[in-house]
Simulated assay, not measured.
Amino acid sequence: MSEKSDPPIFSPVTRDALSQKVAKMLTDAIMSGKLKPGARVSESVIARDLGVSRAPVREAGRLLESAGLLVSHPNRGFFVRTMDSEDLDSLYELRLAIECEAAARLARQGAQEVIPVLRKQMDQMIALASSGEIAAQVQADMHFHRLMIEGCGNRRFVSVFKKVASEIQLGVALIGHVNDAPDNIARNHEMIIAALEAGDEEAARAAMRYHIGVARTAVVAHFQRLEAAGPHPENPAS
């Protein structure tokens, strides 16, 4: 009688799962500045370094192209996207259109279940504010806004925000710092939460308009200063 074998500890890794892992690694490299704006993303080099075939690397590249982090050129492959102040300004304008209405919608329908989750996320953002981990700070901020948008129940808002969030993260990563101190992070997001708690649609719109407007002014102005100083640098962080 054959000995009964133990069940496997790990499930086989599918190609989709592998491409997602490669996409996460590439995203982290872009946000941390290891892969700089305009840099070529070589499928063969990345596949060799990771010990995988080129197929999941190519699929990861397509995922990040859809997210706005990479661009592809025929017969040349993928490159890290560059951005300018006009790109960022239009992204923040789109954020205003989506998030002001998402906040109003959530205030109107009731945000009692979402508010504890938003407060917990705000606490995480404050804890990260002095860490110096730019990518983690921006991701935490974007996650706060995504939680709010998901809570409002409009799936179209969510799908658009996913792409916008990736591009906003790239823009802030290129600057190399975030502008809010911990107390500002708390104050600006507390205004949003307070309006949601009160169920006040107009106050929710106004709080979101102010919050995104402050970020828009700071980030776009920083990019404009970089552009005025000369060609887009590979590492604008100072």
Rank of each mutant, 00 (worst) to 15 (best):
S130H: 09
R216W: 03
E167I: 04
K24A: 15
A165M: 04
E202K: 14
V219T: 02
L26T: 00
F223S: 08
C100P: 06
G151R: 07
N179S: 15
A198M: 01
I212S: 11
K120Q: 03
D6T: 13
S11T: 09
A229P: 12
N188C: 09
M83A: 03
I126E: 00
I134T: 06
A140P: 01
S159P: 04
L50T: 01
N179H: 15
I134G: 07
L91A: 05
P12W: 02
A111R: 12
S66D: 15
A221M: 07
D200N: 12
P236L: 05
Q139I: 08
S85C: 11
R216Q: 14
I9F: 12
N235I: 02
D49Q: 15
P7A: 13
S19F: 05
Q224P: 02
G77A: 14
P12C: 03
K24W: 04
T27H: 00
F157A: 13
V160L: 15
L50F: 03
I212Y: 11
D84V: 00
V172L: 12
N75Q: 10
V158D: 09
V172D: 07
L91R: 12
A215Y: 07
A165L: 05
S166Q: 13
M31R: 01
R54P: 03
G77T: 12
G61C: 00
A198V: 03
E201D: 15
L128R: 04
R108V: 05
L118C: 02
C100H: 06
Y92L: 03
Q224C: 05
